[in-house]
């Protein structure tokens, strides 16, 4: 049976949301930084638990705080991928407020917290960053090398298909 789910990619600007989106959908990575204007919607069909899951992915323009993102973009979302940059503390300093805000507007939505750009830091640095976060980081990824990108989206898909 085919199932469709809306998944939002959100987080501060420049954390690599569009790169994760492109890596997962097109298997591409672009070194250039092109800021997202508004939102871009695309689709990827994956096989999850004997179902064809249409993942409707909304790549939203980055904002320093989640309450700055137009609320209507979040409405009806089944899952949220919150991305922060492991190399820039300003992208995870407000993580607790952002996650509480998201859980408040989407009480039934699945939220995954992702630390991106792991190719730019050492394992010790990653360990230090995630152990000091006030929330649990679900996965660390590198859109550049592709490490854990597929796993991130597939685990989201599995969590959404009951």
């Amino acid at each position: 049976m085919d199932i469709s789910k809306k998944i939002i990619l959100t987080g501060s600007f420049g954390v690599g949301k569009t790169s994760l989106f492109s890596r997962f959908i097109y298997s591409e990575f672009d070194e250039r930084y092109l800021t997202t204007i508004g939102v871009k919607v695309d689709k990827k069909v994956v096989d999850v638990k004997d179902h064809k899951l249409n993942m409707m992915l909304w790549d939203i323009a980055g904002e320093v705080a989640q309450d700055k993102v137009p609320l209507s973009y979040f409405l009806g979302a089944n899952g949220v991928i919150y991305v922060f940059d492991l190399t820039r503390p300003m992208t995870y300093n407000n993580i607790l407020t952002d996650i509480e805000y998201l859980k408040n507007i989407l009480p039934e939505g699945m939220v995954k917290i992702v630390g991106n750009k792991k190719d730019l830091v050492t394992p010790e640095h990653i360990e230090n960053v995630i152990s000091n976060l006030p929330v649990e980081c679900d996965i660390t990824t590198s859109a550049k090398t592709g490490e854990n990108v597929e796993s991130l989206f597939l685990s989201m898909g599995e969590a959404l298909v009951v």
Partner: peptide, 28 residues
């Protein structure tokens, strides 16, 4: 679907690409 932009159904006579993406972008 009003909030999620997910497609509930479609009928098309033209070749306009993926209706799911159309639904999402139009909703955005």
């Amino acid at each position: 679907q009003r909030n999620s932009g997910l497609l509930l159904g479609s009928y098309s006579t033209s070749e306009m690409g993926d209706s799911g993406i159309f639904g999402g972008m139009l909703t955005a």
